[in-house]
Design a protein around this nucleic acid. Structure first.
Lengths: 130, 130
DNA sequence: CGGGATCCGGATGGATACTG
DNA sequence: CAGTATCCATCCGGATCCCG
């Protein structure tokens, strides 16, 4: 690629480093959709173990995508939020969704639900705001 | 998520199924940047083995992202191209690149090279065409 | 050149049990 | 609720050799 010749890594390689661990993308999506607590992230993911979830959250925090807030100590209450940087992933998530929704290989998305889901993503991700 | 309640999978889950595997994103990027041959994909990836590359190409073909063209039989010459669907990933790739380039955590991209790389991606991915 | 077959190691992640 | 500690299965992928 031309990028390498200028002496820097291709940004796509950097991006892959950030997102190729399992569950990472879904966790970011979940935070856009309002999930904050450790347990919430596991609700619709029966095979996301404590260990892996804990690892992912730490990694994402170390990479500056999310931040951890200890809200209360007894009972323990912790919240995870997207950082300002993390929120800039809204367009990536949106384009991923659009790619699938507009893909004829996924007929489960039809005229009955497609536009609704698009609107849901568009509003939730605030695609036009940033 | 609200999506699940409408009876369909979240499109992000579907997207993750497509791109989870190692090298997939880079291979798609490479094809946007003109690479076509088996060997070309390995050039800047010293640890992408024949086996894994072969697997990835087959998977991507099965998923309708790329197509295989046997150009010549002796000597063997095969080309891999993005399908019409695959080409619609241009915006996903673009947004991934932009996210990294505009991220202050990657100071290797500075005023000297950032705009150049952005232009390169914008032109190569033809972001405004589709 | 474009792969297939085998072999094998390390990394990843899931299950379970336990703790503050 | 939010994790930690262990154990274990699997899977993924790299190396090597081989073939048309």
């Amino acid at each position: 690629m031309t990028v390498e010749k200028s002496g820097v890594e291709c940004p796509i390689n950097r991006a892959v480093e950030l997102f190729n661990k399992k569950w990472t993308i879904q966790l970011i999506r979940d935070m856009f959709f309002g999930k904050k607590q450790f347990k919430e992230f596991q609700e619709d993911k029966p095979d996301l173990s404590n260990k892996v979830l804990s690892q992912r959250l730490k990694e994402m925090e170390a990479k500056g995508l999310i931040e951890k807030r200890v809200v209360n100590t007894s009972p323990v209450s912790t919240e995870y939020h997207l950082t300002e940087q993390g929120q800039k992933l809204n367009k990536v998530i949106y384009e991923l969704a659009i790619f699938i929704l507009d893909n004829p290989n996924y007929p489960e998305y039809n005229k009955n639900n497609k536009d609704q889901i698009k609107e849901l993503f568009k509003n939730t991700l605030k695609v036009n705001d940033f």
